[in-house]
Amino acid sequence: MDGIRKYLFGVICAAVICSVVNTLAGKKTAHGAIIRLISGLFMALTLISPLVNVKLTDYADYFNNFSIDADAAVASGAASANEELRSIIKSQTEAYILDKADSMDAVLDVEVTLNDDDPPVPCGVKITGSISPYSKEMLSSFIANDLSIAKEDQIWM
């Protein structure tokens, strides 16, 4: 941007200098025509020369940074949403299992683990507490059928 400012200043200064020189030289003299030609060439050079040195790759790199920032902001938003989603699914699944256990008069502690899919799905459970063998079998079947957590992924302690 500093380059653009310098370019505009250069063009305006050149225009002012050319107009002053042309006015001083006069219109009807023999030198006037030559001076007008030279000042015209000077003005054209001032207009064109900076455009030759412009490196467009610098600007491309500059704009590329915004794309990287955008990706970082999107990743942070998506990550926090995913974290929240995991937390809700985990707590709701645990509440579901505890509700079933409560209906069987069992007091348990449940910790559900989720896989890394999108959306995350319950893949394992760790159950602690005292429960009768019959109720354990019933609850284990419930978990396997309703929540798709296979019996081998259920850890009873």
Binding site: Y62, S67, D69, A70, D71, A73, V74, G77, A78, E84
Partner: peptide, 29 residues
């Protein structure tokens, strides 16, 4: 803009938010 981008991405607009952020930041700069 990064806060709005993250919020829109959390709402499922990942492509929109990235494009909006990059565009707005570029034009603003």
């Amino acid at each position: 803009l990064p806060v709005l981008t993250a919020a829109l991405a959390a709402q499922g607009g990942t492509t929109s938010s990235a494009a909006l952020y990059a565009g707005t930041a570029t034009f603003d700069a």
